[in-house]
Write a protein that binds this DNA or RNA. Structure first.
Length: 219
DNA sequence: AAAACGGGGGC
DNA sequence: GCCCCAGTTTT
């Protein structure tokens, strides 16, 4: 299935050239301790939030409680205080409590490793679920967020209007060995170079593969 | 002052 | 399918 020489080249170049940039927040957090629960909770925290904020809030929270059981010993106010600088902190505190309760009662305290089960949890959509499968469990999944969606379309790897379409379109285009790294590479590229507005095309290591080369400003 | 931030849920 | 969410940082 799929691959394409050009896609291979793009991924290889990105692997080489993006090493100098900091990894996305969830990768950094997962690197410290590979634990699906930490990936899940920090991904919730990262929603519409900058990486630096996500990392510091995650550290604060996990310093106090990094398991469903420990989370449930806290009340909502205490969690809010720990995660405070992230956006939507009240909603997220509630979701973290609810998720922890559900994990205890329905899943024996473990994060499920099936996407349909993950999607039942409050605050968990496809992006979060796939990232948990991907980074938490090392399972084959393509996590599509705004960066992956935007850049995949800029490169004409896919022609889609919604992230969910992108996920399924990429499954046909990408060879499976790249499914897990793809998200990290494109997020890193998207945060540092191929930004939503005013992308730094002159710094882009794959500019020659980009159909919008030289446009300078594109969506 | 305004836009941006690795979405998701409610209607 | 549209609209709202929440507070901090960057432009």
């Amino acid at each position: 299935m799929g691959g394409g020489k050009q896609t291979e080249e793009i991924i290889n170049i990105l692997k080489q050239e993006l090493q100098k940039f900091e990894s996305p927040a969830i990768i950094i957090i997962a690197r410290e301790k590979k634990d699906p629960f930490r990936v899940l909770i920090s991904t919730i925290l990262s929603l519409r939030t900058k990486d630096k904020t996500t990392i510091s809030a995650s550290k604060k929270l996990f310093g106090v409680a990094d398991s469903p059981k420990k989370i449930l010993k806290l009340n909502k106010k205490e969690i809010e205080k720990l995660i405070y600088p992230v956006g939507f902190y009240r909603r997220k505190a509630e979701q973290i409590l609810k998720i922890s309760g559900i994990l205890i009662t329905d899943y024996n305290g473990k994060v499920p490793d099936k996407i349909n089960e993950l999607l039942k949890l409050p605050g968990v959509g496809r992006k979060t679920a796939n990232l948990v499968l991907n980074e938490g469990f090392g399972k084959l999944a393509i996590c599509v967020d705004t960066h992956v969606h935007r850049i995949s379309n800029r490169l004409n790897l896919v022609k889609t209007s919604e992230p969910e379409e992108t996920e399924f379109a990429l499954q046909k285009v990408l060879s499976k060995k790249h499914w897990i790294v793809f998200n990290t590479l494109l997020v890193t590229l998207g945060q540092n170079i191929c930004t939503p507005v005013s992308p730094k095309c002159s710094l882009c290591p794959i500019e020659k593969y980009c159909p919008k080369m030289g446009v300078g400003k594109h969506r």
